[in-house]
Design a protein around this nucleic acid. Sequence first.
DNA 1: ACCTGAACACCGTTCAAGT
DNA 2: ACCTGAACACCGTTCAAGT
Lengths: 222, 222
Amino acid sequence: MPQPSAPRKALGRPPRISREEIIETARRIVYEGGVDRLTMRRLATEVGSTPMALYHHVRDKEELLVLLLDDYAARTLRRPELPADPRERVVVAAAAIHEALVACPWIVEVLTADDLMSTTALWFVEQIVDGLAACGLSPDRAVHGYRAIWYYTAGEIVVRTTAARRRAGDDRTTYRERAFAELDPHELPRLAQVADRWAPLTAEDTYLDGLRALVDGLLLSR
Amino acid sequence: MPQPSAPRKALGRPPRISREEIIETARRIVYEGGVDRLTMRRLATEVGSTPMALYHHVRDKEELLVLLLDDYAARTLRRPELPADPRERVVVAAAAIHEALVACPWIVEVLTADDLMSTTALWFVEQIVDGLAACGLSPDRAVHGYRAIWYYTAGEIVVRTTAARRRAGDDRTTYRERAFAELDPHELPRLAQVADRWAPLTAEDTYLDGLRALVDGLLLSR
DNA sequence: ACCTGAACACCGTTCAAGT
DNA sequence: ACCTGAACACCGTTCAAGT
């Protein structure tokens, strides 16, 4: 597998397209039309080449997607000012990752295709693990704590993105809406009580509240 | 769109295949070969018909997937004994949902294609919302609390399933592994400290710990 | 009402050959 | 070393026609 690579002897045919060019074009396609539009064939023609030429620069489509996520992270993740309080540091670092992911809904495809993330993101992971450790968790528990935060964050992104796609998509009522409509208030009184406010309630952005609750809870058991 | 349906006048041609038959066959295909094997064409031949016959019984592939999830839930979700303590009730209900999802890794495709779930699952949602409310949260906060638990649970499933697929898949090192290997211990000391134990640490099943932390945290802010 | 056949408009990837 | 062309083995879905 060829790398972007150190200077090399000019053996054989000179490259016509580069890894960078491929990623750049892929980014444009995704930006303009969503991940679904990103196919190897389309990418090839947009880059002015053939599908198979791409396979000389990336192993397969999955690698391309991960490369794209790396590229996105390196390009947009800015290190925030970190507060002195370690607990707040955890919250701020996690929220920064979350914010970057929210702005990048195609990410879900990649999230479910590889776990976290580029070198760029490791600094944020470090802040979270370190913050938890500074609050008194053992190194092991700090890592587990980070994982819990990552599950929560990834889940929020996946569920939110799906819901948004759904809303955009079409008008057919979801199964949940139908289920809520025919709900028996004797068997499920709490749900019946909030049934008509369920949609707006669950559409509210409560990521930060949940994150704080999770961090607080993780530090309770210290 | 035809329903499984109330008794109907026997007008026109009698059906050769039914919704139930389709779902049953789809379940078998997924069980034997994974979701990737479930295509409309394969399903059609397995059911002894043509692709287009299916579209008379389900709207499209996505509906089929949701139907399959419903079927799975109705078939395997058993209501657990609930403890008297409301906080424990929340934990037990969430853990029951989680357990059902873990046993059903193809679910990820559907999770990212629709949010929760069949009528069967609503009983569990009720228990969680009710437990949180019984601990003193307002109805709104109880719903938000449930959502946080759902994000955490869905995220755990997505990340876990992906990691497992990856492990099964091939031997190429992940980006994370590579990134961890070349990690600068001065810039990222905490990660350097646990670098060689990262894989086993994050492979541990800590769902319940994280869940308890989250629930504790949600109830702190009461 | 229900099903079929043929077609449309695609996919990702491999293989053998060319420059 | 890098790229091309043709092919393989598929997809989901629509449309027009048949029973």
